[in-house]
């Protein structure tokens, strides 16, 4: 599964950059995130509960961030072990400035295993997009609130 999204954020790039490395903010914007703890620098553990329609799944995930290039982007790897199977993936987040706004591009590839992979094909990509959109809507709202400025 490949996910590519682009979001336009009405905030200066430096502020966006700081925010997307802020664990407290990440914890709030990750859809269904119940807790996020730093295991070491750029290495986090998250407890996530995801609900898409009738499907609910709890995942214990590990997130590793690497190739950090302030303020233009970083690479991430995520791996989750869950009740409905496992998920793993990786990708890049890139920030660019455009007319005073920040464009956040997200490009990731991932795999889901277990029952979801076997029977949920028609919905996995749509669900992934939905969760991404949810996350970035939350992000936008938090940014707008200035909570992390």
């Amino acid at each position: 599964m490949k996910l590519e999204r682009e979001y336009c954020i009405d905030q200066p790039i430096d502020l966006v950059w700081d925010s997307i490395l802020n664990p407290d903010l990440l914890a709030e914007i990750l859809p269904g995130c119940k807790s996020l703890t730093a295991l070491s620098d750029n290495h986090y553990k998250a407890e996530i509960e995801i609900k898409v329609g009738p499907v609910k799944g709890a995942y214990t995930s590990e997130l590793t961030i690497s190739d950090i290039r302030p303020p233009s982007g970083y690479h991430f790897e995520v791996r989750g072990i869950g009740t409905k199977g496992h998920m793993s993936g990786g990708g890049d987040i890139a920030l660019t400035e455009k007319d005073g706004l920040t464009v956040l591009s997200f490009c990731a590839e991932g795999n889901v295993s277990g029952i979801l992979a076997r029977v949920g094909q028609r919905l996995i990509e749509a669900a992934g997009k939905k969760l991404m959109d949810q996350g970035f809507n939350n992000f936008q709202e938090k940014m707008a609130e200035g909570a992390y400025a």
Binding site: N111, A117, R118, V119, Q121
Partner: peptide, 14 residues
Amino acid sequence: YDESGQLVTGSMLD
């Protein structure tokens, strides 16, 4: 099968 070896047509739905 996808690249990770998951059988993605694992039911009569697909």
